[in-house]
Design a protein around this nucleic acid. Structure first.
Lengths: 233, 233
DNA sequence: CGTCGACTTGAGTTAACTCAAATCATGTGG
DNA sequence: CCACATGATTTGAGTTAACTCAAGTCGACG
């Protein structure tokens, strides 16, 4: 495949001259990972970072008891694993493919050299990390200050925004994965989805599709202004 | 009052030439904030970022009901509020002085120009943001995968490391603030501290000083390997 | 010495968890 | 094309860590 063309389409590398794109294609290492296969583990020494080209990757933490907290799910064009490149520390979390995924791997040294020569690349990377920090503040806020129904509501709005503001949403991930992303467990998620359905806030179609029925109430839930009623018999 | 000297001592600006340090001192704006005074609020448009020179600043989120989650506490030499500079978005959280604090404010435009000219500054800033991301992954892990005693234990180790590995720790912040940093409430923190004391894991001296008595058990708590016993009469 | 915030302790409630058991969905080998 | 295996999802029953509410006590400062 045309590696340069693929690199050119990565948002992180927007605005780079042809010459530097060439440099990048010279240092990149292509890699294919199967569904369920790990890409790196927490504590591994980070010698470079990745960009997803196709497929999807989850970044996650594990507790001793095996509970998982998903930090991000990255798709085509999104970089991940950059922290060790600039902080000089090991990877702070684990990465695993959710499906068959193509990734580009950029070794640290060559990439840092390129950043030194290319202010716009440095600024692009600063923007990427800043966005990531922004998302983390939202995640911490959700985990610490919202209850699970509120987190779910917020996630549904995130999905709706991503899918051009539509009310009819494709979940894109399993409910097991969603529960891990929301910092809860499948049983709790299932109960809350059915409660929201009974209260007429959402409707669950087949195949995990969800339709937002009462956007106003869902909004109040996401803001923590209201709660689901205790028992909805 | 020697602004240049103070700027030179900021880790973020290590390795900059005298000329660029001059440039920085030309754009910097000094500011003094009193204890309890806000520096910026979530949603404010970010026209620049700050570096604490003396004193301490907390970065935090608030829920509608008024519960607070502290994200960071920054002291002398540490930059904060950088996200809007590179992401072009508003501040994602609130900042307030914990005590009388001197800060330097660097307006966005001039600083970005300087970054464009100075690769080492760009790399320094990338390192700062990467460290921040690292800390956030740990915070998310704590909030989602650990119980409060585990978070407290982890915090005590963090303090011990910061205070040259000593066993006798100065809390530096009130327990109200600590509870907000750990994602809990003062009552819960108080109960857990007294439980740890009864079990001989720590000893609480006067003035909120805490001494680590049983480092091994505390370590297991932080790792989630063990729990505090249900009731310690 | 009175006030305000920090801190503690008690009693009760609850959101979310664990454990257990079905049921449904998908896919693979025969 | 069927039968079973595996994983996803749901539902029920019970438990619990942490919360809310209430009521002090303690300590520093004006």
């Amino acid at each position: 495949m045309d590696t340069i063309k693929q690199i050119t389409s990565i948002p992180l590398f927007q605005g780079l001259s042809q010459e530097y794109l060439q440099d990048l294609s010279a240092i990149v290492i292509e890699q294919v990972v199967k569904r369920g296969q790990g890409i790196f583990s927490e504590g591994d020494e980070g010698k470079g970072f990745y960009v997803a080209i196709s497929g999807r990757v989850k970044i996650f933490k594990l507790s001793l008891e095996g509970k998982e907290q998903i930090l991000h799910i990255f798709g085509p064009g999104e970089p991940f694993g950059e922290v060790p490149v600039f902080a000089g520390s090991p990877y702070p979390a684990n990465a695993e493919a959710l499906e068959k995924t193509h990734v580009f791997y950029f070794p640290r040294e060559a990439f840092v050299d390129l950043i030194r020569k290319t202010p716009s690349l440095a600024l692009n990377m600063l923007a990427v990390l800043s966005h990531r920090l922004h998302r983390f503040t939202a995640l911490v806020e959700d985990l610490s200050l919202k209850e699970v129904p509120g987190r779910l509501a917020a996630y549904l709005f995130y999905l709706s925004d991503k899918q051009k503001g539509n009310d009819d949403l494709a979940l894109e991930i399993t409910k097991v994965q969603l529960s891990s992303l929301l910092g809860t467990i499948p049983e709790t998620l299932s109960r809350i989805l059915s409660k929201m359905t009974k209260e007429g806030i959402i409707a669950t179609d087949i195949h995990g599709r969800i339709r937002i029925v009462d956007r106003k109430t869902l909004e109040k839930l996401a803001q923590g202004e209201i709660r689901l009623s205790k028992s909805s018999f």
